[in-house]
Design a protein around this nucleic acid. Structure first.
Lengths: 153, 153
DNA sequence: TTCCTTGCAAACGATTTGCATTGGA
DNA sequence: TCCAATGCAAATCGTTTGCAAGGAA
């Protein structure tokens, strides 16, 4: 994930957030966070379950994911295949965007320099305001062909 | 949808595209296009099926949608609920982006002035290139609260 | 006649839920 | 002790597919 704040601290931040929500930070839940920490982009339930560190039944995994989503620890995305993928919320990783490979479906996190991101945000705000929206955030996805797919073609 | 080129012409353009793909433009398929023409943003299979003009069985609807997707007549998106939503491809509607209401899930098409869109595209290209991506397109989603939700809160 | 298209029902895969059991504060 | 958390199996729901019937070239 995009420059996650030092690893061990994440667990502590998550624990605090869960405690605030009156939810326990159990070992099962810890293992899901650990699995997500090795990712460099959004991951599906199946992908997380495959992570050796994370060996809990799929139903518990899903329950954990939704608890985390509720507590804004994870954010859910839906890729082109319709499968839900999760990654740490931006207050844990910093604001970032995604590179999407239209060939293999790979999704990678990418950070955008503050000044440029600010520019995008202003554009988004302007666009939204014109339609009567109160703009909160913007999502910029860069679609293209990744290095691997490019070399294979 | 964003400024669709005159309605009747769309059917003609679709027919031509299908003919090029050696696929027939049947009445069932025509009715799906008609249903999509009344939309102002991406629509799910269920939503299209609910359209009175479009009364074909859900399985045929799905088959039609995938034929259209294959022929680049429709583009598939996945909203926050994971349900697939379709809208006319950009060569039929013009390039545009989406306003997403984080409160009710509404998705509306929005056109962005060429010069501004060009700016966004350059930013996307720069970002992607830095990661070794050959950038093809960019998707900008503006997240906020729509007029309705804003007035209700 | 030939092949595409359609309808219906069954199959699928991701995600959710009911319920009895376990475990942590 | 007590209620949240877990595991398993069964249920859901959107979507896809097999197969036989219908229709256009």
């Amino acid at each position: 994930m995009a420059a996650v704040k030092e690893n061990p601290e994440i667990h502590e931040m998550v624990r605090r957030r869960l405690t605030d929500n009156e939810v326990r930070y159990t070992s099962g839940r810890r293992s899901v966070v650990t699995a997500i920490l090795v990712a460099t982009g959004p991951r599906s339930a199946a992908e997380l379950a495959a992570e050796p560190t994370c060996n809990l039944p799929i139903s518990s995994l899903y329950r954990t994911l939704s608890v985390f989503e509720e507590a804004s620890i994870l954010r859910k995305h839906h890729g082109s295949d319709g499968v839900a993928r999760y990654e740490l919320d931006e207050w844990l990783t910093g604001h970032h965007h995604h590179l999407v490979c239209v060939s293999c479906g790979l999704i990678e996190d990418i950070e955008v320099p503050d000044d440029i991101d600010q520019e995008v945000h202003e554009i988004a705000t302007k666009i939204g305001a014109a339609a009567g929206f109160r703009v909160i955030d913007h999502v910029l996805e860069v679609e293209g062909v990744c290095v691997n797919c490019e070399s294979e073609s």
